[in-house]
């Protein structure tokens, strides 16, 4: 297992997990979110499958909410 931080909370994942795998586990549709991995924005959602997550990584998953 590896431990990483997802949206500010520590989370354990199987070794060799991909970003797409993490989103799948969380039940998140990748088309509806923007992901920042270790402070780098991943602009191409098609590449989520090939982004491998490592221990100590930081992932931020954001979307649009109501605001003024």
């Amino acid at each position: 297992m590896i431990t990483l931080t997802v949206n500010g909370t520590a989370r354990e994942l199987a070794r060799n997990s991909s970003l797409a795998g993490l989103l799948g586990e969380l039940g998140i549709d990748r088309r509806m979110v923007v992901v920042e991995h270790n402070r780098s924005i991943l602009r191409d959602r098609d590449l989520f499958d090939s982004v491998e997550l490592g221990s100590g990584d930081t992932v931020e998953i954001v979307h649009f909410v109501g605001g003024g």
């Binding site: 979110v33 923007v34 998953i61 954001v62 649009f64 909410v65 109501g66």
Partner: peptide, 28 residues
């Protein structure tokens, strides 16, 4: 206008605003 915020991972379905507002109808 819309705001950018973390998806709430503790809620079964944290719906973003785009589930309600059609981005083809409005300029976000």
């Amino acid at each position: 206008t819309v705001a950018v915020r973390r998806v709430d991972l503790n809620r079964a379905s944290d719906e973003g605003i785009l589930h309600h507002l059609d981005p083809d109808q409005f300029f976000l």
